[in-house]
Design a protein around this nucleic acid. Structure first.
Lengths: 161, 161
DNA sequence: GTAATTGCAAAGGATTTGCAACAGT
DNA sequence: ACTGTTGCAAATCCTTTGCAATTAC
């Protein structure tokens, strides 16, 4: 696993021990292309025969995030999810279906460029960003779901126009 | 407070009682142009002489969000913040300083348009969105702060291609 | 009057922390 | 050897929930 190697390098640079647990956690995180919750991570580790305490998982994820190799997400589920930044999809733009909870990704370099510009225009030096678009996925639209504005009509045009 | 009126209307439409507590909470939320936490909201209410339980605050905020008049934010602080959607700034694009925690806003209609397009291109019907850009604000740059990539060099260019 | 809300305190769920035993350098 | 980690359980933080007393309609 070449990405695990990057984490090992990071640990050494920081003078921190490279432990079995840290390697196992990094391997599972880098092997998955999903947005993993701590719960899911624990299950995957157990399936691999590793029995690692939750505290260690949290502590290692914190390091992975600090190292810049992994990113933390919050999709409003009440817990965090983690995703490594290497390999297939260097994307952090998410489409979140308010009906079924499915998360899809967008990849739009122009969007990224425009965001950076907008930030710089305000004297801000951007390092990373996160875009979440809520709405209905194609399937739920087909299934006849309605956007949930239970209240006053308040579509995107009104709010953001 | 004209916005409180909208909330009253929403409650009546839903056949729900308009209580003193609900009005007081709505007044404070609509009177502020900040991103309020429940803690802050409670303090503001107490300063106004209102003594309202946290449970009621949470329950009322849930309704305000459902009504479409208020939006919930999560800046990764471990708790939520709430912001009403009317009045001054119809914006939900945030610049978050990783050094001092300050939150600034962007307003960029082209960005909004481009995001909607990107979503629609994938068959997604967007309703609302949220953009968070992390980095250094102008002040912290001036104060000599460095972007906190404590680990491997991993700037925005590398990650986002 | 009736049905819904309030507020307290207790429960809940995710994450963190203290500390003795243990592993990495 | 020495410093830092692990893992458990307890603690913590935000948020939700149960229920008797209260309020809106």
């Amino acid at each position: 696993m070449s990405f695990v190697h990057l984490f090992r390098r990071y640990l050494r640079e920081q003078g921190l021990p490279v432990t079995q647990q840290r390697e196992a956690i990094a391997e599972v995180v880098f092997a998955s292309s999903e947005h993993l919750s701590v719960e899911e991570l624990e299950t995957l580790l157990r399936e691999r025969g590793e029995r690692i305490g939750k505290a260690t998982i949290y502590r290692t994820l914190e390091m992975l995030v600090k190292s810049g190799l992994v990113e933390e997400h919050d999709f409003g589920e009440g817990f965090k999810r983690y995703e490594h930044l290497f390999g297939q999809k260097p994307v952090r733009e998410h489409l979140i279906c308010t009906e079924c909870g499915k998360v899809a990704e967008i990849h739009s370099p122009e969007l990224v460029r425009m965001q950076e510009e907008a930030a710089r225009r305000q004297g801000f030096q951007p390092s990373r960003y996160r875009l979440q678009i809520y709405g209905l996925c194609a399937d739920c639209q087909a299934a006849g779901a309605e956007l949930r504005w239970e209240g006053l009509s308040c579509p995107i045009e009104t709010i953001q126009g």
